[in-house]
Design a protein around this nucleic acid. Sequence first.
DNA 1: ACTTGTGAACAGATTCACAGCC
DNA 2: GGCTGTGAATCTGTTCACAAGT
Lengths: 256, 256
Amino acid sequence: MATGRTHRPATRSRGIPEATVARLPLYLRALTALSERSVPTVSSEELAAAAGVNSAKLRKDFSYLGSYGTRGVGYDVEYLVYQISRELGLTQDWPVVIVGIGNLGAALANYGGFASRGFRVAALIDADPAMAGKPVAGIPVQHTDELEKIIKDNGVSIGVIATPAGAAQQVSERLIAAGVTSILNFAPTVLSVPEGVDVRKVDLSIELQILAFHEQRKAGEEAAGAGADVSPPPLRGGAATNRKGPDGDVPAVMPA
Amino acid sequence: MATGRTHRPATRSRGIPEATVARLPLYLRALTALSERSVPTVSSEELAAAAGVNSAKLRKDFSYLGSYGTRGVGYDVEYLVYQISRELGLTQDWPVVIVGIGNLGAALANYGGFASRGFRVAALIDADPAMAGKPVAGIPVQHTDELEKIIKDNGVSIGVIATPAGAAQQVSERLIAAGVTSILNFAPTVLSVPEGVDVRKVDLSIELQILAFHEQRKAGEEAAGAGADVSPPPLRGGAATNRKGPDGDVPAVMPA
DNA sequence: ACTTGTGAACAGATTCACAGCC
DNA sequence: GGCTGTGAATCTGTTCACAAGT
């Protein structure tokens, strides 16, 4: 097995940190906006502001791609747009399929930013026979039975799952068996997939819960600042070790 | 222990790492499923598998919340559901507004997982006067003019932005001015907000671009393993230092 | 015997701060 | 003078491995 070194940073300029990869699309968007306004060059400071990050981070990120700037001047906008696009693999067109054309699937199909940047909706797939043939966003919906054929005929390697949670795992298995190796999952489930398949998930309720956590904390600090006590009735003593409510403690959530 | 120390880990059990917070909703979902199947206890190993993480990470995460397990046995499902819910602030109900009732906004409004877990759609808001009064997901859409009043009357602190990119910044400013302190942004823009306001973003095209990056890399490694050359025409020499195409290099993207 | 809880080691990401080049 | 590129320092997160508790 001399191949497939997925872990080590390889020789050198390969092995861009994951955190950097996740920011490249952000930079690309900001650069595209500058390009449309025909701005020729931009400093790390300006670009960082536009992308919502700090400039040291941006420079470090770019340093993984190569030395694409000019000291004392900044970065050439067009040049960088090309380099980042290439690094992200957007100089080629990726056909994607969307499975599950409910409200969300339809919204995704209609989303413009799709086509604009290297992606093409190759097909819409839904399990409901009544949907078959109906056009959504100008593309006729096809039945799940056709899934394997569609994937193969179009050389699709990226699939978007927008089905109900219950169907997602099975859909992912069919996609993968047919040749898909990257999945964007909107269904609120953990997908289990074989080694080598990438999954990214987008989950509304998780995001809201994270916001709620911080929101609650803000309320608590505010109250503390004003002199009120933060934790009124529920447990959690102040002692460092040996907490844990023994048993009379789970208040009105459902248990016995 | 004066007031509002937002940065240091405080005395002790405050200061749950951000990465842990982001996983709590995942654990909660897995636990809820177990709870529905009336499973009384679960080991870190089992729960970790269900949540798609490894067990050491899960135990470490839980250790930030307190000692809620029993050695040799595992965790009590109901008890943990309650503790995590409380930690996330889901024992109270959070009213949220959705601004921008296009395809996506409607999909979000219809999304069930919303109401189920501590969130309540208090209002739908859209700038199109033609939408006003129309019910979406059983809730009548209200006009943007009412935004401030709606936020204040309902004590909304979490807003969801599903408008086009161009409107998002302005909408966020109005939400914040009216009292919102957490925003979930689906518009493909960087929002700039004052200190103390939390923003999380969900961006389809960023996720796809990250997948494309890995997809491209897979294709490259495969080719390399098979003996083919990875980088056919474009630049990027192999030399370690002193790269950067001097000027005849930007191939057919748009520049001069 | 089994599983949690956690220090300690490790790995990854961010920030600092400045040398190097325009 | 101004701005990039990057080592070094720092911070955050993950994994290991085992002592402690049931």
